Amino acid sequence: MNDLDRHDVLLLAELQRDARQTVQQLAAAAGLSSTPCWKRVKEMETAGIIRGYTALVDREKVGLSLCVLAEVNLTRHHEDDVRRFEDAVAAEPRIVSCYATTGQADYVIKVLVPDIKRYESFLHETLFKLAGVTHVRSSVVLKEVKAETRLPLEVPGARTAGRRLR
């Protein structure tokens, strides 16, 4: 299921907007009847296009007021070192995203904690102790200007090139 048609993209856009919709609501939005709609959603789940469903939680309302973007460099890029680092990052709940990057940093991670004291503890008790970490450059986020979770899906065959769904 590599090629998504207009109906698939419309279904994905609707699910990204509100994943709690009924099959009937999704079908209406995508211009399908209920059974084909349900089958398409199930096929996209099976194919891994839809990886899961989740609730979006306001981080500040649950006490995670500090967001830090940290650039991390490793001593060397030996396969075992990289695997150990990435496994440790994947297991650490305070690291909510991690990207292997080009440029000055080997990785950029996003860390959520209640306050600066907890971030300092996280650095000393966790991040600095990871095998191979040689340098960490932290940037405290002052304000999230945009933190979108929806992917910018384009409708295949739309009249306007690059037309995106909102």
Rank of each mutant, 00 (worst) to 15 (best):
Q21R: 14
V23S: 11
Q24Y: 09
L26S: 03
A27Q: 01
A27T: 02
A28F: 02
G31K: 03
L32P: 00
L32D: 05
S33W: 06
P36V: 06
C37P: 07
W38Q: 10
K42A: 10
T46E: 15
A47W: 01
G48M: 13
G48T: 02
I49E: 09
G52Q: 14
Y53R: 08
T54M: 15
T54F: 11
L56G: 00
L56E: 10
V57C: 04
D58R: 15
D58L: 10
D58G: 06
R59H: 15
R59G: 10
E60I: 06
V62C: 05
L64K: 14
L66C: 06
L66P: 09
L69W: 03
A70D: 07
A70F: 02
E71D: 12
E71T: 05
L74F: 04
R76D: 02
R76G: 00
H77W: 13
H78D: 00
H78T: 00
E79H: 07
D80H: 07
D80T: 11
D81G: 01
D81T: 15
D81N: 05
D81F: 06
D81Q: 15
V82R: 14
V82T: 02
R83Y: 01
R83E: 07
R83Q: 07
R84Y: 04
R84M: 07
R84P: 00
F85R: 04
F85P: 03
